[in-house]
Write a protein that binds this DNA or RNA. Structure first.
Lengths: 211, 211
DNA sequence: GATTTCCCTTGACGACTGTCAAGAATTTGT
DNA sequence: ACAAATTCTTGACAGTCGTCAAGGGAAATC
């Protein structure tokens, strides 16, 4: 095989790999939509296929089994949700601005992506039972923790304060707040979103106290 | 029917009702054990029956359907877990004593009932999708919120402090801490239990600050 | 243009699900 | 003791599940 042929073969293979990965993501997207509507327990492969433009058999062409599919979904989900707050952190000039931006994104995300959030909590619960999900879920949880930490530590920096709470604890607190707000919002209480912003303000004032 | 006969009939009926309710609870207990081991998604009625001393058909003699069974389980669960901290609140004489007792029960419960706790978070996630569970789950959540509030407000009282945080927010914070500790504990990190006690101490100091 | 490779559909399989009915076994009432 | 009401078992039902194999059709390769 000549170097040129090798290059071409490489290009072809690369293209195939890309197409393969693309379709996997496309199917993962359909799966995520189905999962966020029905929850893990009630989502079947046939239902997922019906939310895509393909038949149910194709899922086993792109994924080895159901766990493989769900795992890919989780990773695909991560890629989207973790960077949501980075813009706010990067552009905010004052602590007040950062706090307002943080709250705004939080509220918007709660209102606009409630179904995806409940799926996240569902899958996180599943990972407490199913060991095969645990590593990926833990990785996402960690990156969410990092995200919260970037925000809070930057906030403290802008405000000229110091933090005495460790990142995991900080994340746990805000996650608890968000989770409760999500439950209220999904049960029809639209004011839960605004209440979340207030609660975050209040907790932020406590965990980063004036010295 | 004579008054005596009426009384007897009543006694009989009462006894029957009691027996009926007793067996329902007994089956609910088996169901809770199964659910806490497998999770909601993987628990079937036959599996539940195998964890009891009866056959699978009996479940439809005592419960109208699966939702009825699970709902009864949730209520049965509530009756057990909500009163766990009342003793500590009632007997503690000082704020330090209360804090220590709170932490101790928290840690013991995490270590000894981890499977039941993960089931609770699983069912709470299910209620975000399945409306039929929502009311019962919300009721339990509310009573847990009340429990936390009894502890924290009593703590503030003993310490001579005032609280500026509303009960739902307070519950959300501690629930977030507990949930994260549970995940770590179940993934093999035994130190997560003791870390929980430390975190609770720390957060308690923040939410009920020295004035 | 023929052939090989890839992508996708269809239909089937065994296993499992919730539900229910028929009847055996047990308890209760007389 | 017998009769009646109950509690429980068994087996079957219609449906769904994940999985897979056979093959059609499209696209790429030569």
């Amino acid at each position: 095989m000549t170097p040129v042929a090798e290059k071409n073969a490489d290009r072809v293979s690369r293209r195939q790999v890309d197409k393969f990965a693309e379709r996997r993501d496309q199917l993962a997207e359909a799966a995520l939509q189905t999962l966020s509507e029905l929850g893990y327990a009630r989502t079947s492969l046939r239902e997922i296929a019906q939310n895509s433009e393909f038949s149910h058999g194709v899922l086993h062409y792109y994924f080895s089994d159901k766990v493989d599919l769900i795992t890919h979904c989780v990773r695909h989900y991560k890629a989207r949700c973790v960077t949501r707050y980075d813009g706010v952190v990067a552009t905010a000039q004052t602590s007040e601005e950062l706090k307002a931006g943080f709250g705004r994104v939080l509220v918007d995300s709660l209102r606009g992506e409630a179904s995806m959030h409940r799926l996240w909590y569902d899958l996180r619960s599943q990972s407490l039972f199913e060991e095969s999900f645990r590593a990926d879920v833990a990785a996402i949880d960690k990156s969410l923790e990092n995200m919260i930490w970037r925000i809070v530590s930057r906030y403290a920096e802008l405000a000229g304060r110091t933090i005495t709470i460790a990142p995991p604890t900080m994340y746990a607190v805000f996650d608890g707040l968000f989770q409760q707000s999500l439950a209220r919002y999904l049960s029809g209480d639209d004011s839960a979103a605004d209440a979340l912003a207030d609660n975050v303000d209040q907790i932020l004032a406590l965990v980063i106290p004036a010295r």
